[in-house]
């Protein structure tokens, strides 16, 4: 008892220290960036210093358009992720629970999974037009596969000893899924959701690079066309930050869910 108390008392300090360590590398990179930009190896058009990127941020934020780009990108990711995650859970669940479904579906799904994100874009444009739908669908495709893969693998690899306990105590079918298989697979399923969200952001940029007039991907391609390297770097930094932010939020939810049952 006292041992665990001590451990919980020490833990917050330690994790705080560990988090602080994570800030060191970004600061270092920022320093290197500043040095490189000032060294004259690259022209300011190739590599503007961090300060210029910050002022680009101020400029775009001041005009209000930056928030629009951020909002529309985030919205696409969240809707697409929700769709892809639900589908991934459903199909991954089916394949993980039924050997027949596994034999029938998984080779095809594996093959479709191998299609690179950019290869989908022309097809989606052709079928779904240039509105929001193709972008959301592409994000959904991106989010689907990691969720599908982790959920199906987690469910097939549930400890057979525990499944046997469920059977021995009269659980079968959906009751076995609800009381043994699903709870046993929960940690893996949660990390699959995080992977899906991360891949959703990757696919978002693919969608926005090609056919859009808003969003961070558009900002990226537009800045290339107008020669605004500072805006380009800003878009990249924002994509990284937003991806990390949404992952952290999902990570919090994950930790809360898992500690609740520890």
């Amino acid at each position: 008892m006292s041992l665990t108390e001590e451990r919980t008392a020490v833990a917050p300090k330690r994790t705080a220290a560990r988090r602080a360590v994570g800030v060191v590398l970004p600061l270092l990179l920022l320093g290197v960036w500043q040095l490189l930009a000032g060294s004259g190896i690259y022209s300011p058009a190739q590599l503007p210093p961090p300060g210029e990127v910050a002022s680009a941020f101020g400029e775009l934020a001041g005009r209000g358009e930056l928030w629009h780009h951020i909002a529309i990108s985030t919205q696409r990711v969240l809707i697409g992720f929700a769709l892809g995650a639900v589908l991934g859970l459903a199909l991954g669940g089916l394949v993980g629970l039924s050997r027949t479904a596994n034999a029938a579906l998984s080779p095809t799904v594996q093959a479709i999974r191998a299609v690179p994100s950019l290869a989908w874009v022309p097809l989606l444009l052709l079928w779904l037009g240039v509105g929001e739908t193709p972008k959301i669908v592409l994000v959904a495709i991106g989010a689907f596969f990691p969720v599908y893969a982790t959920v199906s693998a987690a469910l097939t690899h549930v400890d057979s000893h525990l499944t046997e306990v469920g059977r021995a105590y009269g659980r079968s079918g959906l009751r076995l899924v609800a009381t043994v298989l699903f709870p046993a697979a929960t940690p893996a399923i949660l990390s699959g959701l995080r992977l899906g969200l991360a891949q959703g952001w990757l696919f978002l940029v693919a969608a926005e690079l090609i056919a859009s007039s808003m969003g961070l991907g558009f900002l990226l391609i537009d800045s290339q066309n107008t020669g605004r390297t500072d805006v380009m770097l800003l878009a990249i930094v924002l994509l990284a930050a937003l991806g990390k932010l949404t992952d952290t939020l999902l990570g919090f939810a994950e930790t809360r869910l898992l500690t609740a049952r520890r």
């Binding site: 000893h161 525990l162 046997e164 306990v165 021995a168 105590y169 009269g170 043994v180 709870p183 046993a184």
Partner: peptide
Amino acid sequence: GIEPRCAVVFQEPRLLPWR
């Protein structure tokens, strides 16, 4: 099929860790 009048204790406890 599973016999409702029997209960098994296995060699390992096999408790459900999340409960």
